[in-house]
């Protein structure tokens, strides 16, 4: 086997030492630090981004809480406003209803008084007519004249009977 022929051991070792030494130095001082730097940078960025995401998430959560609180506040304020307005409207309507009711009552009373007055006036006019009618009818049917007093008392009695 050529491997066991010592002729080329010296050049093999010589070049192996040179090449591996140079390769080792290049890897150690030049290339590996670059890879290391990139990987470290990436890990830092990932850690930084995670942290940033964490704080952003916290901010978003607090913003959401603030938003929900403002919504609840607005709702409560609206409800209070609504209740106030409803109370005011109810009070106003009660007031108007009272005024209207009073006016209605007054007008009703006045109308009733008018009606009563009209009725008594009418009744007052009905009696003389009845008396007159009674005298006339009696004269025509019976041929006797009835005195005004008798007729009046007869009409009174009839009116009492009907009532």
């Amino acid at each position: 086997m050529p491997q066991f022929d010592p002729t080329f051991w010296a050049p093999q070792l010589f070049w192996l030492v040179i090449v591996t030494t140079v390769l080792f130095l290049v890897m150690w001082k030049v290339t590996l630090p670059r890879v290391d730097a990139v990987i470290t940078d990436r890990q830092d960025r990932i850690a930084g981004n995670l942290q940033k995401a964490e704080t952003l998430k916290g901010e978003a959560e607090s913003a959401l809480a603030a938003y929900q609180k403002s919504i609840a506040d607005a709702r409560a304020a609206a409800q209070a406003e609504h209740a106030k307005a409803a109370a005011a409207i109810a009070a106003e309507s009660a007031k108007r209803e009272a005024v209207f009711g009073k006016r209605l009552g007054d007008e009703e009373a006045a109308a009733e008084a008018n009606i009563a007055a009209a009725r008594s006036a009418a009744m007052a006019q009905v009696k003389p007519i009845a008396i007159d009618l009674a005298q006339t009818i009696t004269e025509k049917l019976v041929g006797t004249k009835v005195g005004a007093d008798a007729a009046s008392s007869a009409v009174e009695a009839a009116a009492k009977e009907r009532a």
Binding site: F8, P11, Q12, W15, V19, M27, V30, T31
Partner: peptide, 28 residues
Amino acid sequence: GVDVSFTNASLVMVAVAVFITVFMLAGM
């Protein structure tokens, strides 16, 4: 007086070392 001739083995060693270096540098 020591034989340190550049051989086909030396050439492969150098070529591989150069390849590795270029690979590492170009990749990064």
